[in-house]
Design a binder for these strands. Structure first.
Lengths: 196, 196
DNA sequence: CTATTATTCGACCGTTCGTTCGAATAATCG
DNA sequence: CGATTATTCGAACGAACGGTCGAATAATAG
């Protein structure tokens, strides 16, 4: 069967397009990114893009879905690990940082951009559920951890906001290049959660 | 002289336009906001907007400048207060939260949107310097505070990223309506900085 | 080889949108 | 009052852009 190779080639070309799209999206945002430029950067003609994707928004969503699937794949084993809530929580953030640092352009895009474009279309996108699921898992860990006195005795939602924001700030803020190691994240979290 | 009244009226009309622009920008972002809609919402004809502002981007920048000036005006007395670095730092964040909560639409816009549109035009905008200045003041407080053992003994940049992110998460994340009180912010910070 | 299918692409289309024009109206002045 | 200036606005302009078309080329099949 040639069908396998054909499918693989098709997928490879899609990946090339997504790669080009990412660099343009990152630089210009969703609306600022022009199809013509994405085509130019990925090295295809404009019409060819539409041979592989049916619209600009589909490219956008495919990119995010790709990132979330990859992130989630890496997280699953950590979640199943059966550590204490606090250890699992910290391990998850470390793992996320690791994944992020392995492909910053993609994940900066993934964690920043969607906040700015909350059209109804996007609300229903497939990748959205993974975002929601991640939030829920982290929240449940905090709830369980509070019971065991491993987190500050406060409203779990607040604790998640605070620690999530802290993580976000550590990993994503600042002049590009300087990435924060997973160990530093662990140290910071342990430091700040110490007294409880 | 009627000149004063004229100028005041002109400014009042500009404020109306900015107010309308804010609601549209917030809902649609910079590119998604259409001049026609801003005109409709502010209750002026489209061409009238151009009688008061020379371009869409000028409206955008005027809006942000307005917000930063107001925020900075409120912050200045806190900075001059002469409290300890740690107290001043916490007071500043509390004050920022207060200002934000007093006009959430404006400040959610102000703190979120610019991250998505980093064109070179925006880099040079007048409001940018206030953002930079705020960052520097907070960093200096942390540096001074670390010396006095009032903050974790870590790289000041990292501490600012962590605490800034934490603050950002507390104040801006989550389902809209629920605002976080300044006292909660203080409690959270004091809690997490306790052990040092 | 020819026939059929898959892929590529620049030119083109229709729409949208920021901006400008020119005329109409209101305010101010002498 | 008339004359001059300030303000308002919808209509029209032109550029930009997402998406489509149809022809050309490459790959595969028989």
């Amino acid at each position: 069967m040639t069908t396998d190779r054909k499918a693989a080639e098709r997928e490879a070309r899609q990946k090339l397009i997504l790669q080009g799209a990412l660099t343009v999206f990152k630089e210009k945002g969703l609306e600022g990114a022009k199809i013509d430029e994405i085509a130019r950067v990925s090295g295809f003609g404009k019409a060819t893009l539409y041979y592989y994707f049916s619209s600009k928004e589909e490219i956008f969503n495919a990119l995010l879905l790709h990132g979330w699937l990859q992130l989630w794949r890496e997280l699953e084993e950590t979640i199943e690990g059966g550590d204490s809530p606090r250890r699992t929580f910290i391990s998850m953030l470390k793992k996320i940082a690791e994944v992020v640092n392995a492909d910053r352009p993609l994940y900066e895009f993934l964690f920043f951009v969607p906040r700015s474009y909350s059209s109804e279309e996007i609300e229903k996108a497939e990748w959205k559920q993974y975002q929601t699921r991640l939030y829920r898992v982290l929240l449940e860990l905090i709830e369980a951890g509070i019971e065991k006195n491993q987190f500050p005795q406060m409203n779990p939602d607040l604790v998640l906001k605070a620690l999530g924001g802290l993580f976000h700030g550590l990993v994503f803020w600042g002049k590009d290049n300087q990435i924060v190691s997973e160990d530093l994240i662990e140290e910071m979290l342990d430091n700040m959660l110490k007294s409880n």
